[in-house]
């Protein structure tokens, strides 16, 4: 059986759903950030899959994925720094304690 675009879209969907479930259900702040990165990676897989299967000329999905990776890494760094500053006051890594963010 050949591997089609649907396979990659489904893997991206699974990854996005797992990240969404994790970001909603898990209480640890670091795990929430990791879950968000999983969601971003699922979206990136979709971008690259569409570029590879349906765009033979400009490959715009590659460029979008590249931008997305850079922005996602910086967003993670900023979020970790903000949570670290709040951790010094809260002394807890539970996301419930950060409701006044």
């Amino acid at each position: 059986m050949d591997i089609t675009i649907y396979h990659y879209l489904f893997i991206g969907l699974l990854l996005f759903l797992c990240g969404l479930i994790g970001s909603v259900l898990v209480k640890n702040v670091i795990k929430v950030l990791i879950s968000i990165e999983f969601m971003l990676m699922g979206v990136n897989i979709n971008f690259v899959a569409f570029a590879s299967f349906c765009d033979n000329i400009t490959f715009d999905g590659y460029i979008f994925a590249l931008f997305y990776m850079g922005i996602g890494a910086v967003e993670l760094a900023v979020a970790i720094y903000i949570f670290y500053l709040m951790y010094q006051k809260k002394q807890s890594d539970s996301i419930d304690k950060y409701s006044d963010l």
């Binding site: 990136n44 899959a49 570029a51 590879s52 590659y62 850079g70 890494a73």
Partner: peptide
């Protein structure tokens, strides 16, 4: 994820993914 990018033919994205993430 980097392996998926490589399999999809985007080596540059795979390298960036492996290096950054």
């Amino acid at each position: 994820g980097a392996l998926f990018f490589y399999v999809l033919g985007s080596e540059y994205n795979a390298i960036i993914q492996a290096a950054v993430y």
